[in-house]
Design a protein around this nucleic acid. Structure first.
Lengths: 210, 210
DNA sequence: GCCATAACGGTACTCCGGTTCCATTAGTTG
DNA sequence: CAACTAATGGAACCGGAGTACCGTTATGGC
């Protein structure tokens, strides 16, 4: 009896997710990414996004409603498409590869501003924050195995928290991106990787018992 | 001849910076801090700030104009008041003290959200970004001596970049704050300090020649 | 291929964030 | 302490962001 009363008005796009709806979504998300990269989160105007996506203004307001909700959806999309990791055989090599990949992303003229905007959105809205956390969770999980293998190889002490090692590589790069005016060059990436490797070897990421 | 043509309309508050003007500024900045801590950057409404500060709506719009400009000014204020650092006599001790101070700040129910908001603002506006960079520059400079002393003591290799060591302590804490849902506990702070110390001892922050 | 309806998109409207105007208050200067 | 004017703040105003309405399109089930 509750069949039509229960769902009320489930978000548009959830009942007929194929065809046009999917096309609209991807066009809007792409446009939103462009707009974010250009003007940042504060300059994100839904009407402008609709224009760029060649989609009705009404549609964007109905399906997303506000800028941060749109960013949250963009993050879900971004989390889905992860790029493969490279394996070099040594911890130092793997971490450098990771650091350089992160650096290249953050220094990219489109991706860099986009990541900044997405982080800003996460600080404003808990749904966006959850989406961002998920995004980084998948990214870290993708690379954690290289630290785990280093433990097996004997390069790192047993009990080392593999995910924490990977996070230690990214952290200085994000910190530099957000809090300094200095450029994110390859030297900074290598330094971040080397520092993480050194700290890991010294046992800084060994989880004590628990 | 250019005496009155040159300045045009210098921002209100710059000609008579004393008395009431200063009082209004500090009331507005305090109110802005409260509002940011509560609703985040996206929820920052200038009219609301004016109400909290018991100041005319017009005044806030005239002197700051938009949310990010207000945040930028707030950052200038925050940069001025730096808290003194404690000295323990060893690198490990000093870095732990620093890490715990940073952690306490970021975990604070008012300061934490405020810092998030301020970082978000910096990603939206270059003036806010410049103010944020200045803020961290002064904070890092405040603590860099402890790494410099460690070099003199022989705890760290010569040529170590002291400021980079301090940044390495904060980086994982900010990274965790922004990209994960995990809490910022004291263990995380100590781990950050230990990792930075280990990396520094291993020479990860030695600036090669130049 | 046909029907029911989810989802889109144009138009008209509303409401409030932001501005303008001007009278009032209070620093600052001589 | 008097005159000058920067700065404030109330009130009226304006424009555009966001909403409501409804006809049109095309998806998904049969």
């Amino acid at each position: 009896m509750a069949s039509e009363a229960a769902k009320e008005t489930a978000n548009p796009g959830s009942v007929r997710p194929g065809g046009r709806t999917a096309r609209v979504r991807s066009a809007v998300l792409r446009a939103a990414g462009d707009a974010l990269a250009e003007h940042g989160l504060a300059g994100l105007d839904l009407a402008d996004v609709a224009r760029r996506a060649e989609v009705g203004r009404t549609t964007v307001y109905r399906r997303w409603g506000n800028p941060v909700a749109l960013v949250a959806d963009l993050l879900v999309e971004m989390a889905e498409q992860s790029l493969p990791r490279t394996e070099t055989g040594t911890l130092a090599g793997d971490l450098r590869a990771n650091a350089r990949l992160v650096r290249r992303t953050l220094a990219d003229p489109r991706q860099g501003p986009l990541f900044k905007a997405v982080i800003a959105a996460a600080t404003c809205d808990s749904r966006a924050a959850a989406a961002l956390h998920r995004f980084y969770e998948t990214r870290v999980d993708e690379w954690a195995p290289c630290a785990r293998q280093a433990v097996e190889r004997g390069e790192l002490p047993p009990g080392t928290d593999a995910r924490e090692v990977i996070r230690a590589v990214s952290a200085p790069l994000y910190y530099r991106l957000l809090t300094t005016a200095e450029p994110l060059d390859e030297a900074a990436a290598d330094r971040a990787a080397d520092a993480a490797a050194a700290a890991a070897r010294a046992g800084a990421f060994v989880t004590t018992a628990e």
